[in-house]
Computed example of a mutant assay.
Amino acid sequence: MDADTTFPQFKESLAYQAQLLARLTQNDYMARISGSGIAPAQAYVLGELWFNEPLSQVDLARRLEIGKATVGQTLARLERAGVVERRRTQADRRVVMVHLTEKGRQLRRPLADATTDQIALLETRLGKKRADELTALLVYANQQLGNAYPSAVDIDED
């Protein structure tokens, strides 16, 4: 049997298609929020804070499933933009909590609208049922594979 007939075509592979979907949706989202001055990764941090403010850097990293150092870099950019501020707690001065500023709160509506508009487009193009099924399948795949690829995970060593 010829090796080329058994080797899967990479463009039809799950990994390639997942990466392509991520790139397409990321580029679309970036275009939708371009006027805000916020990058998609920053919007995800803000999203967590809009519903759970205040949070520590460790909590943000855990919730977003990324490394503490990556969250720290994102928070530094958001602080420079005047969107968040980090404050030490009175109870334990070693603990630093992340709070939204008024500017950060004002970004909620335009970023939420961009997300809602993107979801509507996906549901129109794919159909609501297929979009929901694809989302559920991706959630399941990410949960099952999250620990299967340790070299791809953003891990900070303590």
Score class of each variant (00 low, 15 high):
residue 11 K to M: 03
residue 11 K to I: 00
residue 11 K to F: 09
residue 11 K to L: 09
residue 11 K to V: 00
residue 12 E to K: 15
residue 12 E to V: 11
residue 12 E to H: 10
residue 13 S to R: 06
residue 14 L to E: 06
residue 15 A to Y: 14
residue 16 Y to C: 12
residue 17 Q to I: 06
residue 18 A to F: 08
residue 21 L to P: 00
residue 22 A to F: 08
residue 22 A to M: 03
residue 22 A to N: 10
residue 22 A to H: 13
residue 22 A to I: 04
residue 23 R to K: 11
residue 23 R to L: 15
residue 23 R to W: 15
residue 24 L to P: 01
residue 24 L to N: 07
residue 24 L to H: 05
residue 24 L to D: 02
residue 25 T to H: 09
residue 26 Q to L: 09
residue 27 N to D: 15
residue 27 N to W: 08
residue 27 N to M: 06
residue 27 N to H: 13
residue 28 D to F: 05
residue 29 Y to S: 01
residue 29 Y to H: 09
residue 30 M to A: 12
residue 31 A to H: 05
residue 31 A to D: 14
residue 31 A to F: 05
residue 32 R to A: 06
residue 32 R to Q: 05
residue 32 R to H: 06
residue 32 R to T: 02
residue 33 I to D: 07
residue 34 S to V: 14
residue 34 S to N: 04
residue 34 S to T: 14
residue 35 G to D: 15
residue 35 G to C: 08
residue 35 G to V: 04
residue 36 S to V: 02
residue 36 S to L: 02
residue 37 G to Q: 14
residue 37 G to D: 09
residue 38 I to H: 03
residue 39 A to N: 07
residue 39 A to P: 00
residue 40 P to L: 07
residue 40 P to A: 08
residue 40 P to D: 03
residue 41 A to T: 13
residue 41 A to C: 05
residue 42 Q to F: 13
residue 43 A to M: 13
residue 44 Y to D: 12
residue 45 V to H: 01
residue 46 L to E: 08
residue 46 L to H: 11
residue 46 L to W: 05
residue 46 L to D: 03
residue 47 G to K: 09
residue 48 E to L: 06
residue 48 E to G: 02
residue 49 L to P: 00
residue 49 L to N: 05
residue 49 L to A: 08
residue 49 L to K: 06
residue 49 L to T: 05
residue 50 W to K: 02
residue 50 W to H: 02
